[in-house]
């Protein structure tokens, strides 16, 4: 059974049908990719899978349990973490605090009104561990606004990891990054793939083809092709479109 499964998802905004009968499944321990041209419905698909929008029809299952139409905070607490295409951090706070706020152990203390927030060294160590994983070790007291673009991406992923997710969704992680930063990010994801189930939306095909175990191609709100990178290279439609040239 797939760890995360979406069946027959429909989503429309007003008269515009954005997702038409999408079914996807993501296997535990794999890196799955979603690709497709701009406006194909990739980001909407992500929003629906992570609880930001409720689908009009369809089923979403996490380990066989339905999570469809739950609000984002509930989906998050069940172990689905995500990064955003547009940077979405707590900008006034330090790098460390961005991570701490996302730790389940911190969330468990959310009703404490009179105890010190960061007094627990265990929390801070856990957060430092995550910063080391994403390559931001030693920078915990910097304000997150002052980080470079690439480092902010890494912090985004760190925040998502801090929630100890069962599935990690990354929305266009390379957007706005230069070649070097993109390579660093690929290295980071290669390190993380041993421990997490990852789903990436990407239009950078080279990036996706070197990382993903399986890729789904979305176009016109539908899944038009699916398979391993090798199978997709052989796929006629993919070859004919601009995607084939890159692969």
């Amino acid at each position: 059974m797939a760890l995360f499964e979406a069946r027959n998802i429909h989503k429309r905004f007003g008269a515009r049908v954005v997702l038409e009968d999408i079914s996807l499944s993501f296997e535990e321990g794999q890196v799955s990719g979603i690709m497709g041209p701009n406006g194909a419905g990739k980001t909407t698909c992500f929003h629906v899978l992570t609880g930001r929008h409720a689908p009009d029809r369809g089923e979403i299952l996490l380990q066989g349990r339905s999570i469809v139409s739950l609000p984002p905070q509930r989906v998050a607490r069940l172990g689905v973490a995500r990064s955003f295409q547009i940077m979405n951090l707590f900008d006034d706070s330090t790098v460390l605090e961005n991570i701490v706020l996302a730790l389940p152990a911190f969330r468990a203390r959310r009703r404490k009104l009179f105890s010190a927030a960061f007094a627990d060294p265990g929390l801070l160590d856990a957060a430092r561990g995550i910063l080391d994983q994403v390559g931001l070790g030693g920078r915990e007291w910097e304000p997150s606004v002052s980080l470079s673009y690439g480092d902010r991406r890494a912090l985004e992923i760190g925040v998502a990891l801090a929630a100890q997710p069962r599935v990690l969704f990354l929305d266009e992680p390379t957007s706005g990054l230069g070649t070097e930063a993109t390579q660093n990010l690929a290295q980071l994801i290669k390190r993380l793939r041993q421990r997490y189930t990852i789903v990436i939306i990407e239009h950078d095909m080279r990036f996706l083809f070197q990382l993903a175990d399986r890729i789904s191609v979305i176009h016109w709100g539908q899944v038009i092709a699916e398979g391993t990178p090798e199978q997709l290279r052989a796929n006629k439609w993919v070859q004919r479109s601009a995607l084939g040239e890159l692969a």
């Binding site: 609000p71 905070q73 979405n88 707590f90 959310r110 927030a117 801090a162």
Partner: peptide, 18 residues
């Protein structure tokens, strides 16, 4: 600190589970 996180970025606060 969670209140302050909500001030800074309400959507992010929801997506980390609050």
């Amino acid at each position: 600190r969670i209140l302050q996180a909500i001030r800074q970025n309400e959507m992010r606060a929801a997506f980390v589970g609050y």
